[in-house]
Design a protein around this nucleic acid. Sequence first.
DNA 1: CGGAAGATCCACT
DNA 2: GTGGATCTTCCGA
Length: 207
Amino acid sequence: MGRLRTLPPKFYRRPAEEVAPDLLGRLVVRELEGERLILRIVEVEAYLGAGDRASHAWNGRHTERNRSLYADGGVAYVYFIYGMHFCLNAVTGHRGNGDAVLLRAGEPIRGAETMLEHRGLRRTPRPGDVAGGPGKLCQALKVDRDFDGVALSRGPLRFTEGEPVSAEEMVTGPRIGIGYAGDAAAWPLRFSIRGNPHVSRPRPRGG
DNA sequence: CGGAAGATCCACT
DNA sequence: GTGGATCTTCCGA
């Protein structure tokens, strides 16, 4: 694999629904204790700020938890959920908007064994076990609230270029786990790579 | 101050 | 397919 450049802050300063599909195929590079862990992004979801009932920024809500969600695009928004999991977002757009893209799944490219250790699974690994879900992804990369608000263009957690994903290789559908969000639950803001076995359940139809 | 819910995951049937 | 784990965060009283 050739030299991969880190995505600049400008990359993120666009609408979330535009950044989200553009993140597919990109790499997440995590430097941890001298080791380089790499995931290829295979599934994401866009969250559209104040007008999106599924977003933590719904109705312009500002709280202590979601403070970094309103930063300029290019930083992480990490939150704790269900008493035991973290979710990693890339903040998009511009300061005050509250737009973000949730990383839902990644394909292990490098350091799979270490990531599997982080996951603490005792059963035989299957595709998706390493990072086939937003909580799994964070556990695999050891990403927690310490990364909330941290820039993604430098430091121990970086997003880089990768092989582009064409529209034909892409699947679009409704987001997962937001049944409470009314009309917004049906919006086609989930993007994944067609047929990729590391995508989280439920698999999009036609994949 | 208390209750309820949550952008989830896993084991078990 | 279902239910339990587990606890921070938020909102209403």
